[in-house]
């Protein structure tokens, strides 16, 4: 099965530790992702102003590229891109007046009316493979790893793009359980990390991180499992400040795709743990999930 894949800007640079283990894992699972040969920025955020259609052009162009290639599904890994693309797609399928305006404006492009389905990788794992089948593919069960799934905002809100129940999502817990890890439920798993406030008010970010990290740790989590590169940055940088100020002990932050690759028995080098915050390799070694010769951890987080 070939699926169109939209990576987005951040996954090619800062978040290679999200993308590369995902691509390798899907290959191991027999799902072939075909990266779009032409893609552009998705716009990162969906335009909320009713008259602002120009910012819908970028995400819609990506959807048209997928349709041109004869794909009916577009798989997205980055939570921000997923949200922007899926909302733009809903606009094109559900709002005839705006669709017509956009199609007329993009007169060099074929008309588009939301034919491509935008899917997040977690939906693909749940709906195409299934947790039971995934469990059978696990070669290195992540035994003893107690991790708190952190969803953030953009996979669940607004309601019409949610990949799971808005108030009580379980998709990441189910995923972790299939890999043999112990999911730690905590009430702040869908609370905002501060998002792009890190651009305007970086001083507020440690406070957002504290309100998410500390409740997870209090419930016994040895680390957090993330899906979004901006959550990773805000929680990672926020945590560094909290550790400095002795407001938090510091826990490893994982991307869910790294845990998938590890559990499928792939070479840990594909996980790029050197790009993670909070030294995940130390925890993995402690639990016997990584050999002492595993890729060395570089200090100081991301470049």
């Amino acid at each position: 099965m070939q699926l169109a894949y939209y990576p987005g800007c951040t996954l090619k640079t800062k978040a290679r530790n999200l993308e590369e283990p995902a691509v390798a894992s899907l290959e191991a699972l027999g799902l072939e992702l075909e990266e779009m040969d032409r893609w552009n920025c998705c716009g990162a955020v969906y335009s909320l102003a009713d008259d602002d259609l120009i910012h819908q052009v970028a995400p819609v162009r990506n959807l048209i590229r997928a349709k041109e290639r004869g794909k009916d599904r577009l798989v997205v890994l980055c939570s921000f891109c997923f949200n922007a693309l899926k909302r733009a797609n809903l606009l094109m399928s559900g709002d005839a007046a705006k669709r017509d305006t956009l199609n007329t404006f993009m007169d060099e492009e074929p008309d588009y009316s939301g034919e491509v389905r935008v899917l997040h990788l977690l939906e693909l794992l749940r709906d195409e493979i299934g947790w039971e089948a995934l469990k059978k593919k696990v070669k290195l069960p992540l035994r003893g790893l107690k991790l708190a799934p952190y969803y953030g905002c953009t996979l669940l809100r607004p309601r019409e793009v949610a990949i799971d129940d808005v108030e009580n999502p379980t998709i990441l817990q189910d995923f972790l359980a299939a890999l043999g890890a112990i999911p730690v439920d905590f009430p702040e798993s869908t609370r905002c990390c501060g998002s792009y406030q890190v651009v305007s008010d970086p001083g507020d970010i440690p406070g957002y991180a504290r309100d998410i990290l500390n409740p997870a740790v209090r419930r016994g989590a040895g680390g957090l499992v993330l899906t979004c590169p901006l959550c990773d940055y805000d929680l990672g940088k926020g945590q560094e400040e909290l550790v400095k100020n002795e407001e938090s002990g510091g826990v490893p932050l994982f991307y869910f795709t790294q845990l998938l690759a590890l559990a499928l028995g792939l070479d840990p080098a594909v996980c790029h743990f050197e790009l993670n915050y909070g030294d995940p390799e130390a925890l993995l070694r402690e639990k016997g999930l990584l050999s002492p010769e595993g890729t060395p951890q570089k200090t100081g987080g991301k470049a």
């Binding site: 800007c9 920025c41 990162a44 651009v199």
Partner: peptide, 22 residues
């Protein structure tokens, strides 16, 4: 206004979304 060091560190989705919102 964004310090040079942060410009290099911030993920692209932060820069794009922040500057689009602000």
């Amino acid at each position: 206004d964004i310090p040079m060091k942060e410009r290099g560190e911030l993920p692209q989705i932060a820069m794009v979304s922040g500057l689009r919102k602000f």
